[in-house]
Amino acid sequence: MAEALHPAAPHHLPAFITSPGDTDYLMVAAGAILVAAVLGVGLLFLRLHTLPERMAHRAHKLQFEIVAVLGLLALFTHMHIFWVLGLLLALIDIPDISGMFGRMAGALEKIAGIAPGRGGQAAAEADAAPVEEPPIVPEATAVQSGQH
């Protein structure tokens, strides 16, 4: 016995309405689009989140490790100030002070006639050697001889 349609029911149903027990293709497509959108937004977020770290790494900055730690702190604490600080550090060139001091030390070693890289050893050897002190001249003798 076939059931008759209710008189208020439409005689033609849209294509996205399925019969009971059939596969709902619209829901499958919506689910696939939802999964792709969540993965896409997540990848975009992580790509944007690692922007300061990638900038510091690409420019071979001295402060790369600090920028990376700030990025991780921002990720796990949800405090955006860490990300902003990391971005600012990635954009700023911090001068290479150790290299500057190394060049100064090399120049001083060259002036002193010490072999390059032996400045600390030469200073330690000089400290270990006995130092001869000049004789003490009494003040009255120094004034008479015209030394003062």
Rank of each mutant, 00 (worst) to 15 (best):
I97S: 14
L85R: 08
L91H: 03
A4S: 10
G40D: 03
W83K: 05
E109K: 13
E133H: 01
H60C: 06
G42M: 06
L85S: 01
F45T: 01
P138F: 02
L73W: 04
V41A: 05
M55W: 04
F101Y: 13
Q147E: 11
T77I: 04
A115N: 09
E3G: 12
I111W: 08
H57N: 15
A112W: 13
P116Y: 03
F76A: 11
A32M: 02
P52R: 05
I111K: 06
L34E: 09
I33L: 13
H6K: 06
S145K: 15
R118W: 01
L88F: 13
S19A: 14
T141H: 11
V69W: 02
V84A: 04
L13S: 09
Q147Y: 08
P52F: 08
I94R: 05
A126H: 04
L70Q: 04
I136E: 09
T23I: 14
M104I: 07
H6E: 13
D22Y: 03
V28A: 15
A107E: 07
Q121H: 04
G42F: 12
L91Y: 00
F101I: 03
P130G: 10
L85V: 08
R54I: 00
P130D: 10
L34S: 15
M79F: 05
G120E: 13
H12C: 08
T50I: 09
Q144P: 00
V69D: 00
V67S: 04
P10R: 10
L13K: 08
G146Q: 05
A68F: 13
D22R: 10
A68K: 04
A129I: 00
G71T: 13
H49A: 15
F45E: 01
V131I: 10
V38I: 15
E65S: 15
S98R: 13
T23C: 02
P138E: 13
D96I: 00
P116R: 10
D93N: 04
L48F: 05
I33H: 05
P135G: 15
A56M: 05
I136G: 03
H57T: 08
F82T: 00
R103K: 07
A29H: 01
V35C: 11
G117A: 11
G86P: 09
G31M: 08
E109Q: 14
T141S: 01
A68V: 10
G99P: 04
A37V: 10
S98L: 11
V67A: 12
L62T: 01
H148N: 07
G31V: 10
G86K: 04
M55C: 02
A115R: 15
P52A: 06
G71C: 15
G102L: 12
K61G: 02
L72A: 09
I136T: 07
L62E: 01
T141Y: 03
F64Q: 13
T18G: 12
F16K: 02
L73H: 03
